[in-house]
Design a protein around this nucleic acid. Structure first.
Lengths: 348, 348
DNA sequence: TAGGTTGTCTAAACCGGTTCAGTTCGGGAG
DNA sequence: CTCCCGAACTGAACCGGTTTAGACAACCTA
């Protein structure tokens, strides 16, 4: 015979007080005599009482959960190291405080919107983490209109009522390009992410600005949808150019690996004939041949701090924007000086 | 001023009936006159009434959510195509019925156990999906003791109160090995997953049994933890053998890609000097050079059907085990006949 | 000693649904 | 014309917490 879990009324009866007082005692609120509080806690503990999240949810109008809606094709997700690490980080912040993560993975913009609507309508979460910001991102207005709390991963391109927690990609991209330029590359291409995504734009801008600073060509840019297939396509296009690049900076590791495949298949030897760099260092990039020079960020930490920030927002505490340690270049084998039979550069 | 969302009492008042009757009407239960029901639905719709999930949760003792606890290191997750696709599939089953997925990613067995305990104690979910089954998996007893409903991905190695939804790996593995044997390979190795995981064991067994049937060596097996790093390590060990294998069957694509890297780095040309096959076809495997022969399953469909099965279990409907279409071999470029002129190739 | 203040506690309302016992009413059978 | 029955509906309890108004006693002050 399974004995039902005790309720707050059971505790009250057992302790000989009213259930209201038990509630006060258990929530550490003033107005309870020290001795009584102790006795109540003791009785509750002894009876194995656990608060009912549902009852608490109903009466306090909170969900004790955060939401994350990922709008990406599973194909893109499949090789991407970002979300697993990010979610693992979120978890480390939530578990200790008894909160949960409600995850939704959608594959179209309509599904994305209805996903946020459902989360809000059902009161499923107290706040959401907005990732993969886009230009004029409709989610910001939507989410605030729905009355959800939120934070953004990165700064949106318009005014936003939500705090942002960001990792500056620029130093990483700049370091990658500078690294290649320092090696002597003059025609450096960029296989960019979708231009509707802000981090894609930012990376592209950083890319272009370093090149301009150095007086190098900054027009070798191909936009992609972040998939391996599109990374391969972009690489084929670049390598087919009459004046092909000698180095390619990719916006993620998956595309870089696919690009490496294309290059090798076409008879180019990397890094002798072509240098490549990735982004958002994946585990596998370290083990391919040649190993992939890439740009890494502390994603798991990002996840943890994002969750902590959102919890503070929900609690109504002051919460300013957070700027995390910038992305860092990790030089491995896939980058080297270009073949030297090309024209030599003159030192400034 | 924002008007508060209407409650069932508001609808009742507006329609001139009791709130009990509104509840009956909205839940399509008998005992409501057709005309009245229509009027109530009309009023509710007009007022924009949405049921409060929290109130419903409290009174019906249900969560309207499913749980998934993933106990893997983010490093392993990062290149693995399984969970993103699986979760996307789950979502397609949940969204239409207004349910949600509560996801938890943990990195230790204690954290895993306490994660299930929290989900149950908080009544956060009505059931859980048990993935990555292990031998003598403690979660089966735990989860049933906690009173959660559940389904397992694959058949556990002991009696289980939960239905299983499985994809038979054997045909895929057997096809991969047969493919290699048919090409003429005689020394075929296996880079296996952790032996504590049932699917790892099953794949190893299938591997060994085909080899025995064909009278080939079945002892070239190295166990790994599924990471790229460990896949690389296993490959180095195998290639260092005096009588090295001419083909390697990997238990996932990430390790196969890492293995390819190791082989190429050691001067082996794939597939001329060494054939390799992966498992759980990832997007990127199609774009490396040489492209990866692998074994694929319809993971997204698996996710959708798993969620649907669990929903049936929760609803108390009959729910038998489900056997999905078996894994299939996808032959690409990384497998070819062994070199016939030399029995042993020496590493440069 | 009266009056006010403070601290401790109780009772009841409340969150927004579901469910059940019981009341009302109309129609068919006898 | 009754009587009975089932369909339609009401009112209230219930889920398990939180919160507020108010009761009561002890203590302090004038």
């Amino acid at each position: 015979m399974a004995k039902l879990r005790p309720t707050i009324s059971d505790v009250a009866r057992q302790a000989g007080v009213s259930k209201g007082l038990v509630s006060f005692a258990l929530n550490d609120r003033p107005g309870v005599a020290a001795g009584t509080r102790l006795r109540i806690l003791e009785v509750a503990n002894e009876m194995g009482w656990r608060p009912s999240l549902r009852a608490r949810s109903l009466s306090t109008d909170r969900a004790f959960a955060l939401g994350l809606v990922i709008a990406r094709d599973p194909d893109i997700m499949s090789g991407d190291p970002f979300f697993p690490a990010f979610i693992a980080g979120v978890e480390t912040a939530l578990a200790p405080v008894g909160q949960s993560l409600v995850l939704s993975m959608v594959q179209s913009e309509e599904a994305e919107i209805s996903s946020y609507r459902q989360l809000a309508a059902h009161g499923r979460v107290d706040g959401v983490i907005l990732s993969d910001l886009r230009r004029d991102d409709p989610r910001i207005a939507l989410v605030s209109e729905l009355g959800l709390r939120a934070i953004t991963l990165g700064h949106p391109d318009a005014a936003s009522p939500f705090p942002a927690i960001s990792v500056d990609d620029s130093p990483g991209i700049r370091a990658a390009v500078a690294h290649l330029a320092d090696l002597g590359h003059e025609r450096i291409a960029h296989v960019a992410g979708p231009s509707r995504m802000l981090h894609g734009i930012r990376r592209s801008n950083s890319f272009a600005s370093v090149l301009r600073e150095r007086g190098l060509v900054d027009t070798l840019v191909v936009e992609t949808d972040f998939t391996a297939a599109d990374g391969a396509r972009a690489t084929r296009e670049l390598l087919a150019l009459a004046d092909r690049p000698t180095a390619i900076v990719y916006s993620n590791d998956v595309m870089a690996i696919a690009g490496l495949g294309v290059a090798q298949r076409s008879g180019f030897e990397v890094p002798r004939d072509l240098s490549i760099t990735g982004f958002d260092g994946s585990d596998v990039g370290a083990h391919i041949y040649p190993s992939l020079t890439t740009v890494t960020t502390a994603v798991q930490d990002w996840g943890r701090q994002a969750a902590e920030l959102l919890l503070r927002v929900i609690a109504g505490e002051d919460s300013d924007d957070i700027e995390l340690a910038p992305a860092q270049l990790l030089v491995r084998e896939s980058s080297a000086p270009p073949e030297t039979n090309t024209t030599t550069t003159t030192a400034p």
